[in-house]
């Protein structure tokens, strides 16, 4: 907070102080029941769940060989996940994992798009809890697949790449285990969180800055506010691209981890 405030207040040399956006802006508690606190992202999550279930059920109900208009659009998304992500990354027996990949993709996509939805404009994926929840599902899934495929000891043996000097095996195993069990889920969650958080923060900087400039006394600042709002608008459009891309990357990496665990030999 102090940094962004310093940067923005350095740009705006006025008597009254401009406070930039901070991570605290993403924390919006609504009701406190003591043991649990209902926040705005939780309500958005409920909306996301309802929306996702509605899209899936409306798109696939009465799925016919000759698609209706709604089914056609749904099929575009489904085909993208099925052929573009799951089949490419997992391999021949990808159909088992289709519900996981497709559900995750839709969930992350809708959560991301909530940042650009009018009247909501609050991405649940910019709260670390949601990427962690999504990653937890992937984490359980790919380790379950790996242990089931290779056996308990076989999975650890599978982690060490072939063609290694025996003296190096324990060291490399340590590294590989850290990668498999810690860094992969960490980067998966943090990538989504960081992108959504930073993107929303950027828009907030432009919009709050523009607002501050607009309501400032100096008429020159009012003029500058147009530029700030314009940049905010451009960033908003850019963000929609990033949101879709991050959902794709999340589903891609989830499929890739499952595919690695599913693979026979590396």
């Amino acid at each position: 907070m102090s940094l962004s405030a310093a940067l923005t207040s350095g740009a705006v040399v006025t008597a009254d102080e401009f406070t930039g956006p901070s991570p605290a802006d993403f924390y919006q508690p609504m009701w406190d029941f003591g043991w649990i606190e209902i926040t705005r992202p939780m309500l958005v999550l409920v909306l996301v769940t309802i929306l996702a279930c509605w899209i899936m059920l409306a798109g696939s109900r009465n799925a016919s060989v000759v698609p209706s208009k709604g089914q056609f659009y749904f099929e575009q998304i489904y085909d993208f996940v099925r052929g573009g992500i799951a089949r490419d990354m997992i391999g021949p027996n990808y159909k088992k994992y289709l519900p996981l990949i497709f559900g995750l993709f839709l969930f992350v996509l809708l959560s991301n798009l909530m940042a650009s939805t009018p009247f909501v404009q609050n991405p649940p994926s910019a709260r670390i809890a949601v990427p962690i929840a999504a990653t937890a599902v992937v984490y359980i899934a790919y380790h379950y697949v790996g242990f089931k495929k290779h056996g308990f000891l076989g999975y650890f043996k599978f982690m060490v790449p072939a063609g290694l000097a025996p003296a190096m095996v324990p060291v490399i195993f340590l590294l590989e285990a850290a990668t498999f069990f810690l860094i992969r889920p960490l980067t998966l969650a943090l990538r989504l969180f960081g992108n959504m958080f930073a993107g929303h923060m950027l828009i907030l900087v432009f919009v709050l800055g523009g607002e501050f400039l607009l309501f400032h006394d100096n008429w020159l600042f009012k003029l500058f506010s147009v530029g700030a709002f314009g940049m905010g608008f451009l960033m908003q459009i850019f963000e929609i691209l990033i949101q879709a891309l991050q959902a794709y990357v999340f589903a891609l990496l989830a499929a890739s981890y499952i595919g690695t665990a599913e693979a026979d030999e590396h």
Partner: peptide, 25 residues
Amino acid sequence: RSGFSRGSDLAAQIVSYLIAGPLTF
């Protein structure tokens, strides 16, 4: 060459390894 997704996760996995090494040791 079958799909456009194949190979596009390499960068992410490499970054995972590169973070894991310094962090673990």
